[in-house]
Structure formats: structure tokens, C-alpha cells
Amino acid sequence: MGLSWMAWTWQTGLFFGVIALLLVAMTLRELQRPGGAPRHGVLGLDTTRGDRLFISLLGSAYIHLAWLALVPWPLWWALVLSAIYAALVFRYV
């Protein structure tokens, strides 16, 4: 069975590849330096590393959509903003 029906593009392939790599990297980091136990962050939530990754990815999706809807500049800036957001989430949430 080929995968042509899934209509892959290298851009979307890269997108999912990066997410898969993030998951692998998180697993390796947990094995190497266990410390993923929940901690209490600024939002008053107990989050593990995995939770923080999820919050970062979901938030990034919204940042990109909001950027597309409201800001006329290129979408790369949304990516930069998302990276900053993700860093803040991992540091403080």
C-alpha cells in the first residue's frame, strides 16, 4: 500500500517529523535525567514535562492561527513568538 492517498508534502512531513523528534528527545532526556515529576507552576497547575510540551504545542497552534488572522507580517514571526512562548512555558508553568 502506497502512501500517495495521504498526499504528503515535505513541509507537512517536516512538521510531523519535528513533533516526533520532540517526543523522542523528551523520552531520551527523561531516561538520561529523570525529573519529569509534576511541579507546581505559575498557573497554579501541577504539570509534568509532557504536559508542558502539550501546552506549548497547543498554544503555538493558536499563536499561528491568531497571527494568520490578525497580523499581516510573515508567519515566521509567529514561529519565533511560539518558541519564546514554549520556553516560558517550560520555565515557569
Binding site: W5, A7, T12
Partner: peptide, 20 residues
């Protein structure tokens, strides 16, 4: 879901032909 993501960045006129 991955297929939907792939569709969302392309256009098609059928026949499994897609344009980015």
C-alpha cells in the same frame, strides 16, 4: 488527522493531484 493536515495546505481537482 495527518492526512487532513496534508490536505489543509494543498489544493486538488481530484485524481489524486495536489498543489501546494
Amino acid at each position: 488527522l495527518m492526512t487532513v493536515v496534508n490536505y489543509s495546505v494543498q489544493d486538488t481537482f481530484g485524481n489524486n493531484l495536489f498543489f501546494f
